[in-house]
Design a binder for these strands. Structure first.
Lengths: 222, 222
DNA sequence: TAGATTGTTAATCGATTAACAATC
DNA sequence: TAGATTGTTAATCGATTAACAATC
């Protein structure tokens, strides 16, 4: 069998949720049709990029007219797997874990946290934002019952790989990793790292470069 | 004056904190010297990429020997602006704001949150993780006194641009944006967006593609 | 019809990877 | 010295941007 898998352009996938946000706003305003140009202007990016990104989802528009907003929303949601409710478990109910459990911005955004797990017996039995906290050994049985495939990792970095092992053994196929640890998983498991330090690095480097330039300009002006 | 600014490769900057993590671990183990090959193997990436990335910081190694770990750490920290303590204000003490205030993983990572602000009078005067919560109108005076340049934005999306305006007016030059809102700032202010939905999109899309492929393979096997 | 917008093919740009000379 | 590693220059790869034909 030939390898027909074309690698998907990650930058494009990352932009799709932003389009979804715009489209939902437009729909709420009662609009039915939208052009790439419109979306592009709204987000201050190029219309060609928007068109290429949207084409990924398989949807087609009508020349001179544009795209049907409802169809476009459905196509993006389907492409991202956000249409069939994406239930998730969260492991590690520290401050970040609590924040994610309480965050309501993921509703209708492909993520629905159904239960939390923690190794601390003092936390087990409590609940946060209506989601109960279980002991880690309940993972296999709850996972089997609820058919959950996504695990959110918010444990301390040192506990990361143990927790991942438990998640994968319990049948998780995707891990959203909020720890700075490099995870070791068997190949048929998807890992996405949320690298806050990487983002911070870009911020501070650019700030520092900007301040340096200004100091140089000041020195030259004297 | 000719434009001598070379655009900095963002992917490289994003990888630097990971190198820093490895280097600090090695230093704690008492090592003095390290080669690109060693770092690369540790992180499961190519040694050429490591060498190119490190070169950005201006440091040079010795052929056959490698890099002095202490120098390398200093060079990366300097390049990222993580050496002179990067004090920051946090605006919006909701669940995410609280989590960041409590998170200790940014210590020695270029970020030191010195105070928090919130528009809710009930929160003003309280403190989280030893950091006091102030009313928003205290921003200008505290900013002037503490010489803070970085603002962390964890307000609801609807309040984002008002908060940004207050931050910029108070002298912030860099905004770390945790809201999904598109910020409007004057040009000499750096904005870095933490796009959780983008990360989630990659995770769910890849999971959904993987499950689809498996279903196809199953169907073919029958 | 005329003009605007899509969809596709080609060109450009930047980042990654490869090749290799320099050197401790 | 020999071999390993750096640093640099060239080749490849992928993403963005540009150009343009198709079409409602």
């Amino acid at each position: 069998m030939p390898n027909t898998e074309k690698p998907l352009p990650l930058p494009s996938i990352r932009r799709l949720p932003t389009y979804l946000q715009v489209l939902r706003t437009l729909k709420a305003q009662g609009r039915d049709i939208v052009s790439c140009t419109h979306i592009a202007q709204d987000l201050d990016i190029s219309s060609i990029q928007v068109r290429k990104d949207l084409a990924l989802t398989g949807i087609t528009g009508k020349p001179k007219v544009g795209y049907a907003i409802t169809d476009l929303i459905a196509a993006i949601e389907n492409f991202l797997g956000w249409d069939n409710h994406s239930d998730a478990f969260l492991v590690g109910v520290g401050s970040l874990g609590r924040a994610l459990l309480r965050y309501d911005g993921f509703v209708g955004q492909g993520l629905n946290i159904v239960a939390a797990f923690d190794s601390d017996p003092a936390k087990v039995g409590q609940s946060v934002a209506g989601k109960e906290i279980y002991a880690l050994d309940r993972l296999p049985d709850l996972s089997a019952r609820l058919h959950v495939k996504i695990g959110i990792l918010t444990v301390p970095a040192t506990a990361a790989n143990d927790a991942v092992y438990a998640l994968v053994m319990a049948g998780m196929r995707a891990i959203w990793n909020f720890t700075p640890a490099k995870l070791e998983v068997p190949t048929p498991v998807v890992v996405e790292d949320v690298r806050l330090h990487a983002s911070l690095a870009v911020l501070t480097n650019r700030l520092s470069e900007m301040l340096k330039r200004e100091r140089q300009a000041d020195a030259q002006a004297v």
